[in-house]
Design a binder for these strands. Structure first.
Lengths: 233, 233
DNA sequence: TCAACGCTTTTTGTATACAAGGCTGCAGGG
DNA sequence: CCCTGCAGCCTTGTATACAAAAAGCGTTGA
């Protein structure tokens, strides 16, 4: 339910809030890839007019999460396996670049933040809590983005990660990916702390590529999601 | 590579046409960085209502070309020198990645296209026509993007190049950058044709970084533009 | 003279109204 | 039985109307 008691305070509050809400709904799987996003339904659901809905959809289309087909409406973008491979390939390179720069540029505070995020990952892994690990993992990678000393790069990395979120979410629950992931994190931290930039880049690159390469599991989860979707719609 | 980022041309024609028109106006310098983009003025200028103008501005804001400050309007984004360095750093890495992949993956047709673009660059350089070189240069780099075999990467590279366009345009007219640029192109082509992926990446990376590093010229041109802007506004 | 307050004006953000293109379904013909 | 053409509805795209916030400006008080 939408919080009707929330008073309209900041500007473009509706449109921005809507964008985030829709992003979340898509990431969470409420609107699976291929779903048509009807303007009037969304307007009704959020108790606003079509205008802010349209603006939110346009933003989402710019970020690549939805696709606006002229005169036909907005659809949650369907990302095929080949394109997903491409995206992971780019993601891996961006993260590798972050790691390379971070290992050269991070100051003491940033290194401390990285270590702490790593600790929290470790705790979540020990507790066997994949959701907590998901959160901590995000902070871990974010620490590396921030440590690159390149704000633009960090933004790009975050944005792409966000686009891949719906797919990685499934991914993390497969096998005992968490355990392996943590070991890889350790290697990354070691390389960064040692200031070994090539090694840091290499390890982080493969850390990401592993997610994209496990296509047995990957395709399986996609197929399952697809099956569910077809069964419902 | 099959699905090039082709924005819908037919419907939403006003909004899309407007976006492109505004992009062009900004790139060309009609609206210098910092300019306020008033909705009603733009609406009047293009003989449309505020709605499509707003939608175009939102798209431009998503692409980073303009900045929408809540309740205060849209402004052509001012990109400071530090951020520009960051952007060139990322651009260099993206292009290097393209070159690395291209030298491994390009087929005969793609190599031929690259050679032809290189020829046209050479012609333009010999003719001393910087505008023609600008066009041919774009095709040259585009050929490498396409040859990477990674359509998503190609899109990202094109988008970022587009964002940097207003700044590179000035850049290319400096000194005899064209001559050096052509020599660098030759080295890139050689490396790609030899299938030497590391070398291709290295050469292309520095080819881009050179543009970002010449900050004596760069700052000078920016300062000049700034001066002009202040004199006018 | 200067600063602070409030009013007015201007502009953005949202809702609604109107226009136009696509989709569906039915009917008629091959 | 299937295919096609037309009509009506439904959805998107654009224009206009309305609301609210911020900036400009003048007045007033110290």
């Amino acid at each position: 339910m939408t919080d009707v008691a929330t008073p309209p305070r900041s500007a473009r509050r509706t449109a921005n809030a809507l964008r985030e809400a829709l992003e979340d709904d898509i990431a969470v799987g409420l609107y699976p890839p291929g779903t048509r996003l009807d303007e009037v339904s969304l307007a009704k659901r959020f108790s606003v007019s079509r205008t802010p809905i349209r603006e939110a959809l346009i933003e989402l289309s710019a970020s690549g999460l939805v696709e606006i087909r002229p005169r036909r409406g907005a659809f949650v973008r369907e990302i095929g396996i080949p394109r997903l491979i491409e995206m992971f390939e780019v993601m891996a390179e961006l993260e590798a670049m972050c790691a390379r720069l971070a290992s050269r540029r991070m100051d003491a505070a940033e290194r401390a933040a990285l270590m702490e995020a790593h600790e929290r990952c470790s705790d979540a892994a020990k507790a066997g809590d994949p959701d907590a690990y998901y959160i901590a993992n995000e902070a871990f990678h974010d620490a590396i983005y921030a440590g690159s000393g390149n704000g633009f790069l960090a933004e790009q990395a975050r944005e792409l990660k966000n686009r891949l979120k719906p797919y990685r979410r499934l991914q993390l629950r497969v096998r005992n990916r968490v355990g392996n992931s943590l070991a890889e994190h350790q290697a990354i931290v070691d390389a960064i702390q040692a200031g070994n930039d090539d090694e840091a880049a290499r390890v982080l690159r493969s850390h990401i590529l592993i997610q994209g390469e496990r296509f047995n599991d990957f395709v399986a989860s996609l197929a399952a999601a697809e099956k569910t979707r077809r069964a419902q719609g």
